[in-house]
Design a protein around this nucleic acid. Structure first.
Lengths: 336, 336
DNA sequence: GAAATCCGTCGAAGCGCTTCGATATCGTCC
DNA sequence: GGACGATATCGAAGCGCTTCGACGGATTTC
């Protein structure tokens, strides 16, 4: 292992000077800087992370807590995780991967051992038990998701309430009078996951405001469960012509089933999905959708956490407005 | 922050004794152990990770390098990552998430800075440029995937060559004389990703051995590209009755398209997928498939890396035999 | 022209832990 | 009963870095 002392010897300076070259915390003459940088390059020096963490009380690591087995759509989680990791590197930070099942003990361990300087939490429930621990240990943190009580916390999320409303508006504007929300699985609602509950709330509120009729059905996302859900919707409300799909896994089965039942999309039925653009674009027909801005959220979370680490401990709440893109899967309701 | 010295004071012993209680490297009387453990619990002590890393020259961290934007199926990557993380915790290790686009510089940084003790690499290419760096820096590492030259390296992967062959065997045994391999996207083959190349090789070899006819078509996995691929296959070889699908994204479109063209699965066409069991089970009909043992590979990788860290630096090559499960999507070829 | 200021560098302390050698207290063996 | 080995504990060194105070020399200020 190359140490700072060897770099110092090679450059003919003291090790504190090398440290200051690296940290830029004191001014260094151009000449010295060049010599040190040459020595670093020549020896292939990398500061020892542990030593640095011990001396500076900063690990330059962010902990990212992701759901282990998720009801959430896995590609979205992955996209957020990758965005976080990439953005963190821009700030010279590494990312430690934790699973949500480490729970409160995990949060305690991280904040107690100094293995990470801050945390980013995903899959936040309305009444998440990690939150009290975060407050108690005063750990810099950003939540991706919105708990019931966000006081004093920094959060970023898509505004799912507005998302639900926007989907209704789009369909209502096209003349649809009977719409259905094909939602996440029962388990997601039972766990009180914020995003599903908020979407439903926004959906139902706007349905009432627009004076149209609606049903909501949880859906597991398998082909068979989607078939069952669709059959029940069409049985109870044969006049349903507008579908909002929140469970990404149900999208492909739904389109397939509509095709099979000779309902043309968008001539006979309109479909609006809440999903990443990529999914909307690779379906056929291309889906009108509210996109899930995974990258934006991941990057924003890192920036916020860095702001906190720089000393600004003000909380903030960022609800990204939904962006509904009209594609090929929605059109005016058929004349009844 | 609670330090080991405070624990020692609270327990009425020296800090080295506390350290030995934690590490079990020297014998400690039952009495002392209890006092120390009580003090630890009472104070909520967590050893400072940096200090520990500095003193012991071990970070208790594993670096996991995952593809950033993958042609691989994202859920498989995620499943491996989660399995690695969970298993690592069993060994008291944390997991540092790196993206493959950090490339060789990332490998150098990790091995130079002591931020992790070992690496686990995913998305290994046949001629991966991270491998020479691994050899040069002598970093303990396990590859999930199989490069062209695995000498001196420890690897784990599904035996994709045997997988391709097993799929052919299954279809040939059922009497299919014309089969098609719907593969990964062109880009995957161009990058010389091991698993795609090996599957194709095994497929083609066994096709020749069994004296049946076959076509291979790369596929992007969108509905439209799958439609195009299927149309071409049926045009060139209308007698094709057996399909092997390697690109998970193409599975749903393929089933939908077969349904639409009134080809019943499995009566008119048999489908064998190479995918996680979960995907096979939630399709309709449930798919005959060779499962991708993501969890097994993730766990095995961690165990191997721990073995290396314990001093056993022998290389090893673990090719998991394919497990083909017959479900509802394959049956005897229709009488022609 | 002496005092004040700034710049660039150095030496040393100290971060919290592990680990080595030393020491003290036993019980055990002829 | 004295020598010996085991067992349990302690003290101190040292891991590689950051950071504080100090210091010499150049520059500015009145």
């Amino acid at each position: 292992m190359v140490t700072i002392a060897e770099v110092a010897r090679q450059a003919g300076v003291s090790s504190s000077t090398v440290s200051y070259v690296l940290s830029r915390k004191r001014s260094i003459s151009e000449d010295t800087r060049r010599k040190v940088e040459a020595a670093i390059a020549e020896l292939g020096y990398h500061p020892h992370a542990g030593a640095r963490a011990l001396a500076s009380n900063r690990s330059n690591t962010l902990a990212l807590m992701v759901p282990l087995r998720s009801d959430m759509y896995v590609p979205v989680i992955m996209e957020i995780a990758m965005a976080v990791t990439t953005e963190a590197r821009e700030f010279g930070q590494d990312v430690l991967l934790l699973t949500k099942d480490e729970g409160t003990g995990g949060v305690r361990r991280i904040s107690g051992s100094g293995v990470a300087d801050a945390m980013i939490l995903m899959d936040v429930e309305l009444d998440d038990d990690r939150i009290p621990v975060l407050r108690e240990t005063d750990t810099p943190a950003v939540l991706i998701g919105l708990p019931a009580d966000a006081a004093g916390l920094t959060c970023v999320d898509l505004d799912f309430d507005a998302t639900g409303a926007a989907c209704v508006d789009h369909l209502a504007d096209l003349g649809h009078r009977d719409v259905a929300l094909i939602g996440e699985s029962e388990a997601v609602y039972r766990r009180h996951t914020g995003f599903a509950a908020r979407t439903l709330a926004g959906f139902q509120r706007r349905v009432a405001e627009r004076g149209i009729r609606a049903v909501h059905r949880p859906c597991e996302g398998t082909y068979e469960s989607t078939a069952g859900v669709l059959a029940r919707i069409l049985e109870e409300r044969p006049s349903t012509t507008g579908f909002v799909v929140q469970n990404e896994a149900a999208i492909a089965p739904l389109l397939s089933l509509l095709r099979l039942s000779r309902r043309l999309v968008p001539e006979d039925a309109s479909v609006v999905a809440i999903c990443p653009d990529q999914v909307a674009l690779q379906s056929s027909p291309r889906l009108t959708s509210v996109s899930i801005p995974a990258q934006v959220m991941g990057r924003y979370a890192v920036r916020q956490v860095m702001t906190q680490l720089e000393g600004d401990r003000r909380s903030s709440l960022m609800l990204l407005p939904p962006l509904l893109t009209v594609r090929e899967s929605s059109a005016a309701a058929p004349a009844s």
